[in-house]
Design a binder for these strands. Structure first.
Length: 421
RNA sequence: GCGGAUGUAGCUCAGUUGGCAGAGCACCUGGUUGUGGCCCAGGGGGUCGAGAGUUCAAUCCUCUUCAUUCGCCCCA
């Protein structure tokens, strides 16, 4: 292993990839901005306790996936594995609830989880995060789901399915968990797969989400959350569904949809793609009333979601618009010419044109090949007789036509004939 | 943390029951051409991922290791 190698799961994004991320961020600012969301940039490092207290100490994320280390004074820091916790901290610390009844925040950036990389999963990955704080009404749930689906549509993505579920609230969830555990413990536990036998102890809800056919049939008649939630939760979820139906948003109810982070309650949702490999979950979120107060803040409700940007990029990949074409490429036929080229190029750029110069003075054939590859609209040839004559040959790379101009007048001439160069 | 696949030229990959390392594309030089794209000729490039073992001889067989990749788990 060489230190001159990137860290496993940490990727370099060159133009073809980075333009996709730029496009996502631009679309996000436009779409979410139209719903009143304001951008918030939060730190990458936080005290470890923030994550363990919000995400849940028993979750896989906290137990085995965080990049955690001590700072120089021995305090435990963690590179954020998700954005919600940090946003909550910022919201509380800056006393946002006193300034506005509802805060709508959007944030994007890198997240870090120590997992085995595979398609659609990196150790440093990027999420786009929206949080709506201060609204407990079901209309807020519906709006954020509608907004998310609108955003994905604006990115030109298709073939996505929206799954919805409710997890109940603090009042009714314990009863459901008890009913589920009773059901599971009455099963022939040996018939469950190895993973599920482990889940019985760690996270019984996950057993419902198992992909093994054997477990599927065993749990086919397991108690479902929907049948156990309280009247308030039922009303809440029904209202959300009514709005989603009226808004004509295709969706499926998935009573087995479970969230991996402890703070979720009531409405949960996930957007899934079947086209990008095993890690098909593209966006996920839900309501988390109680999280802010649990972190020591005011009793403010919240709902939000996160989008996996790498996973969106996988879907957008073949969709890229043509890259902008440079106006000029300056090729030199003489070792002294690149010096002159710098002056000419800068005058052209200040006149509003874009382009590069070749610092080498190679053969004409080779230079023209480079100019071709550069895809510039015009190739400017410097050197030889023309250099002596203080002029430059301008060749139209599409038509092959060429004319000669004086070097000093070039930028002015080009500006006056903008359509030409 | 667990499993499968793969590491050979800048890129995509061939290859040998173990015997001097290959192609296409790219790059460079020259020719042809309307100063670049097509065509022709030539050329540069590789500790065959790394380390150990077996052997007269290992890119090939054995072991170890590192990396990449797909899946499990988990998540977005």
């Amino acid at each position: 292993m060489s230190t001159l190698q990137s860290i496993k799961g940490f990727a370099d994004l060159f133009e073809s990839q980075s333009t996709l991320f730029t496009q996502m961020e631009d679309t996000a600012r436009r779409v979410f901005g139209a719903f009143g969301y304001k951008e918030l940039r939060i730190p990458i490092l936080e005290y470890t306790e923030l994550f363990s207290r919000s995400i849940g100490t028993e979750t896989d994320v906290v137990q085995k996936e965080m990049y955690t280390f001590p700072d120089r004074k021995g305090r435990s820091l963690t590179m954020r594995p998700e954005a919600t916790a940090g946003i909550m901290r910022a919201y509380i610390e800056n006393n946002c609830s006193a300034r506005e009844a509802v805060s709508k925040l959007v944030s994007f950036g890198p997240m870090f989880r120590y997992e085995r990389p595979q398609k659609g999963r990196m150790r440093q990955f990027h999420q786009l995060d929206c949080e709506c704080l201060g609204a407990h009404e079901p209309q807020a749930d519906a709006e954020i789901i509608i907004m998310l689906m609108y955003f994905l549509k604006e990115l030109g993505l298709t073939g996505l399915s929206l799954e919805l579920n409710t997890l109940g609230c603090r009042a009714c969830r314990p009863a459901y968990h008890a009913a589920l555990e009773t059901f599971l413990s009455n099963l022939e536990s040996a018939a469950l797969c190895e993973d599920c036998r482990r889940r019985l102890a760690t996270n019984p809800l996950r057993v419902l989400d198992c992909k093994e056919a054997g477990c599927r049939t065993l749990t086919a008649h397991a108690p479902l959350i929907r049948d156990h939630v309280c009247a308030d939760c039922t009303t809440h979820f029904d209202t959300v569904l009514d709005i989603i139906v009226v808004a004509n948003i295709p969706h499926t109810l998935n009573p087995r949809l479970v969230r991996g982070l402890d703070y979720y309650m009531r409405t949960t949702f996930e957007v899934v793609s079947t086209t990008i490999g095993a890690q098909g979950s593209v966006a996920g979120g839900g309501r988390y009333d109680g999280l802010i107060s649990q972190l020591g803040g005011p009793n403010v409700p919240g709902i939000g979601f996160a989008c996996g940007m790498e996973r969106l990029a996988l879907m957008m990949a073949e969709n890229t618009s043509a890259l902008p074409r440079p106006d000029f490429y300056i090729a030199s036929l003489d070792p002294a010419a690149p010096t002159v080229a710098l002056t000419i190029a800068q005058a052209l750029r200040e006149a509003g044109f874009s382009g590069e110069i070749s610092f080498q003075s190679k053969s004409l054939k080779s230079q023209m090949r480079q100019a071709s590859k550069n895809n510039a609209r015009f190739c400017l040839l410097l050197g030889g007789d023309e250099l002596v004559a203080n002029s430059v040959v301008i060749k139209n790379m599409d038509t092959g036509e060429q004319i000669v101009q004086s070097q000093q007048a070039l930028a002015v001439w080009a500006k006056e004939n903008r359509g030409v160069l």
